[in-house]
Computed example of a mutant assay.
Amino acid sequence: MIRLTVDLELCEGYGNCVFEADDYCELTEDGVVRLVRPDVAAADLQRVELAVSSCPVSALQLEST
């Protein structure tokens, strides 16, 4: 299983992750990312990898569980 995680101390609310994978990430009223679905489906992995790599402050990570 692949899991999406976020380091809230790094997140600056750019929203690139939301643009790439809005069914996994959303921005809160405070302007930081909130994970909607942390467990990544195999069919979505490439798109979520793009969301992770698009973060300019590297706040998102993928982990194997």
Rank of each mutant, 00 (worst) to 15 (best):
L62M: 08
P38L: 02
A51S: 03
I2V: 10
S58P: 13
Q61P: 09
L8K: 09
D22S: 11
N16T: 10
D39T: 08
G31Y: 04
V36C: 04
V52P: 02
D39H: 12
A51C: 07
D7M: 11
Q46A: 13
V18E: 04
R3C: 04
T5V: 11
A51M: 00
S54K: 07
D44E: 10
V33S: 04
D7R: 12
E63R: 15
E49D: 09
D44P: 11
C55N: 14
D39Q: 08
L35K: 04
L50C: 07
V40L: 03
L62Y: 07
R34C: 00
R34D: 04
V48W: 09
V32Y: 09
T5W: 06
S58A: 14
R47D: 06
F19N: 08
A51E: 05
A42Q: 06
V6T: 09
E29G: 01
V33Y: 01
R3P: 03
A21H: 03
L8F: 06
V6E: 01
E12M: 12
P56Q: 15
V32T: 11
P56F: 12
A43F: 11
P56S: 15
L35M: 02
A21C: 03
A41Q: 09
L60T: 11
L62N: 06
P56V: 14
L45T: 07
E20P: 05
V36S: 04
P56T: 15
V36E: 02
Q61K: 15
R34M: 03
V6Y: 06
G15P: 09
D39R: 14
A41W: 06
D23H: 07
L4A: 06
S64Y: 09
I2T: 05
L60K: 14
E9H: 12
S53T: 14
D44L: 02
N16R: 01
L35F: 02
P38E: 03
V57E: 14
L50M: 07
V6I: 12
C25K: 01
M1E: 06
F19K: 10
A42M: 04
A41T: 03
L50T: 08
L45Y: 09
Q46K: 13
D7W: 13
T28N: 02
G31E: 03
C11G: 11
C25R: 01
L62K: 08
V48N: 10
G31S: 02
S64A: 06
A43E: 15
E20V: 04
